[in-house]
Design a protein around this nucleic acid. Sequence first.
DNA 1: TCTCTTAGTTGCGTTACACTACTAACTATA
DNA 2: TATAGTTAGTAGTGTAACGCAACTAAGAGA
Lengths: 231, 231
Amino acid sequence: MVDELKQYPMPFTRLELAILSIVEGRLAVLLGKRTGRPYAGQWALPGAVLRIDLDRDLEGAAQRIAEERLNTGLPFLRQLCAVGGKGRDPRAPWALSLVYRALLPSDAFAPRPGKRLDELVWRPVEEAMADRTMAFDHAALIRQAVESTRTEIRRLDLPQGFLPESFTLGELQATCEQILGERLDKSSFRRKIDQQHLVEEVPGEMRTGAFRPAALYRLAAHSWPDQRPRE
Amino acid sequence: MVDELKQYPMPFTRLELAILSIVEGRLAVLLGKRTGRPYAGQWALPGAVLRIDLDRDLEGAAQRIAEERLNTGLPFLRQLCAVGGKGRDPRAPWALSLVYRALLPSDAFAPRPGKRLDELVWRPVEEAMADRTMAFDHAALIRQAVESTRTEIRRLDLPQGFLPESFTLGELQATCEQILGERLDKSSFRRKIDQQHLVEEVPGEMRTGAFRPAALYRLAAHSWPDQRPRE
DNA sequence: TCTCTTAGTTGCGTTACACTACTAACTATA
DNA sequence: TATAGTTAGTAGTGTAACGCAACTAAGAGA
């Protein structure tokens, strides 16, 4: 072990999870009510200290924290950004947070409040971003998560993970509209979707309901790996 | 101060600088030859330990490190990603690196090797990405830096910082082509450039040379802030 | 004066776009 | 059985953007 290690104090390093979903037709973020200080009783992104004794790498840390705080795993995690500096967290002189984002269909995802959290709620992002009582600088982090997600969708990167196993094109379009908060044109949407070959039809299967049945689609195999570098 | 601080050891946290430029017509990355262990004598991205006693925030740390290692400041820095895990750095059981990227015109940028660096060289990115003797996991970091830069340019985010004060459209196009490693169509390029109003003509000024003089342009005032969130 | 090279513009056929309107399929209700 | 109502999916259409190539413009140098 070299001097550098002992010599310099390292920052108080945490991971925060920005978990987005569509709840009641609106884009929402999962918030936890803090039990301990600081900001006890206030809302914050679920997060925890990085544990180098437990975590193999950052991805592993994010999964452990999801288990601890939410009692569930998280597919389709994506690293968003790192923020760090003096005065971000009263517990330490210098705090660093690594922010991860997940997109999930809220019905297939049942988090239960874990350690240090009283309660979990889905909060519409517009509210959360404007909330001045949010703990730490988390309102700003949520804004970043939402903006980058909207940019991805505008580019028609499919909302991986947000989608169930199979879905109709109408459902896919509605999901994109809810994330963006605006309506999209049906024929343009479908044209772009199928010229990118990101989805493929599930043969035979149809979704029947009150009206005309719709064809079911699934993510095309080659569109899966979501680990592109950020831009 | 709360238990969490003392209780858990924090990761060995560094910043690495991926500084890109065009050198001899090719996209190149600035590498430093390490004087100390580990990887003494091998090439690596310039970087250093985060110093919470000296650095106000991450941006400030990046600037301090640029001064220390390169004896110069760095405009147009952009946070790229964070990588962390066990076994990335033999000096510590768990190492975290925050990677920052800069784009610079190599002629207006004269770094001199600073602390812990013997020598600085510009290395074509294709070579650097493929080099298996590069220290740490820096070859992979360079690959990420190059890919995200190319994606930005393809979207015609201008190569801020890469450009001198004023430039001709021909030079701008050549710069983009060198970053991308492919040719672009002249009329399409110019059409897109001026409909985005990212540059404005410098009135009166011309670049004269061997052939027909070219009009000079500069970045439009409103196109400057480069602090959009990553996607 | 002619040639070479780069600067900058113009014309054109093809493709992508948003928008609208249409047909198709099924349920529900009368 | 007929018809209204709703969503699924397709087709037409005028406009704008695209890539490609050809063109004109301006200076240097022989």
